[in-house]
Amino acid sequence: MRVALFVTCVNDAVYPATAIATVRLLERLGVEVDFPPGQTCCGQAQFNTGYRRETEPLVRRMGAVFEGYDHVVTPSGSCAAMVRENYPRIARKAAAEGRGTELGEIAGSLVPRVYELSEFLVDVLGVTDVGAYFPHTVTYHPSCHGLRTLGLGERPRRLLEAVKGLELRELPGAEECCGFGGTFALKNPDVSAAMGTDKADSALATGAEVLCGADSSCLMHLGGILRRRGDPLRPLHLAEILASTEAEPHS
Rank of each mutant, 00 (worst) to 15 (best):
V33G: 02
L222W: 03
P88T: 03
R155M: 10
M220F: 11
T183I: 10
K93E: 14
V14D: 14
E154T: 14
L121H: 02
L117C: 10
C41H: 00
V122R: 11
F180A: 07
A174W: 14
G100D: 02
R99F: 13
G63Q: 08
Y115P: 04
A94T: 07
D123G: 00
V7G: 07
G146I: 03
D231F: 06
T137A: 14
A208P: 13
D231C: 08
T74I: 12
H250W: 15
E67P: 01
V130P: 00
A243K: 11
E170I: 06
A205N: 00
H237C: 07
Y51R: 13
V59N: 07
P142M: 06
D70L: 13
I106A: 08
Q44C: 10
L222C: 01
F35E: 13
T206Q: 12
G98K: 03
P249L: 01
G98Y: 07
C144G: 13
G153N: 08
E154I: 10
Y133L: 01
R89Y: 02
L121S: 06
A243G: 12
R157I: 04
F134C: 03
E246S: 01
M1E: 13
T40G: 07
F6L: 15
Q44S: 01
A174R: 14
G108Q: 08
A194H: 13
V33T: 00
P172W: 12
V59T: 12
E167T: 12
K199A: 06
A95E: 05
K93C: 04
C178A: 08
R113C: 01
R99Y: 09
D12K: 15
G38W: 03
R99N: 13
R61P: 04
L150V: 06
V31F: 11
A45L: 14
P172Y: 11
L26E: 00
V31Y: 08
F35L: 14
L121Y: 07
T101N: 12
E105G: 15
C144Y: 15
L160K: 03
P232D: 15
R61I: 11
L159R: 06
K187N: 09
R228E: 14
K93Q: 15
A132T: 05
R53V: 15
A247Q: 12
A162P: 08
F35Y: 13
V72K: 14
L238P: 01
G30D: 02
R53N: 11
E105I: 11
E209N: 02
H145L: 07
A19I: 09
E209W: 05
V124H: 02
P249D: 03
C144K: 09
A19S: 15
E105Y: 10
D70A: 08
T128V: 13
G173A: 05
K199R: 09
R60P: 02
E246A: 03
A174Q: 14
K199G: 01
G131S: 03
L125M: 11
T206H: 10
K164S: 12
Y69R: 10
F47K: 10
A45N: 08
A21R: 03
A162D: 07
V138C: 05
